[in-house]
Amino acid sequence: MRITEHPIIKFKRGKKVTIYFEGKPIEAYEGESVAAALIAAGIYVFRYSPRHKRARGLFCAIGKCSSCLMEIDGKPNQMACMVRVRDGMRVRRQKGKGVLDGD
């Protein structure tokens, strides 16, 4: 959900772009974090934990807790709260620990 009217803040949103969550297109604005775009689209589960497969989402939003790790453009363990959206970006829920290139 996006705020359209606010008593004191004027939101200066960047250019509209499209990112793909699990292949599905989602509207986003340049300058915002992947996490903000996903939550605006009603997506709250960002990954499943390695051992108990529990759903995890955003917690701190400032890159300090690792709750929001996702696979972004093929790279695992990216903090969705710190990475900014880019047009055409592909975002997937991370399952488990993620595998590095060349592994």
């Binding site: 959900m1 996006r2 705020i3 606010h6 803040i9 939101f11 949103r13 915002e32 974090s33 903000a36 939550i39 605006a40 709250y44 955003l58 917690f59 701190c60 939003a61 400032i62 709260c81």
Partner: peptide, 14 residues
Amino acid sequence: GAVQTLVNVYGVLP
């Protein structure tokens, strides 16, 4: 603080 970031910086409601 996370909620504050979402709401006040990005204008997104959780």
